[in-house]
Amino acid sequence: MSEPLGISRADVAHLAGLARIDLSDAELDHLATELPSILEYVAAVQQAAGDDVEAMSHPVPVNNVFREDVVRPSLTQDEALAMAPASDQGRFGVPKILGEE
């Protein structure tokens, strides 16, 4: 696997797509010039730890945290929809969803 310390404008555009942010050309240019230095800095971690080191996903280890399968009160339909930008027929109104048949 390559370890690119650089990141092209096209890379930033691709990442913005994954992150669903419609970045302007100016923003793309700016990030494309700014991110490489940050990436160069953080890339240092690649040399820090060997394969034998465990990756830490939880700083305080706990296992098997469950809840009983018991119903708790839900929000009312009005509470659920109260902050919705749009709603209709008790549902959240969203623009047309692509890839729907």
Partner: peptide
Amino acid sequence: FCGCPTEFGAEPNTQTCP
């Protein structure tokens, strides 16, 4: 991951929570 009921066919958005 939450205590909302799962019954089929309830009124829309009446079985939701934060």
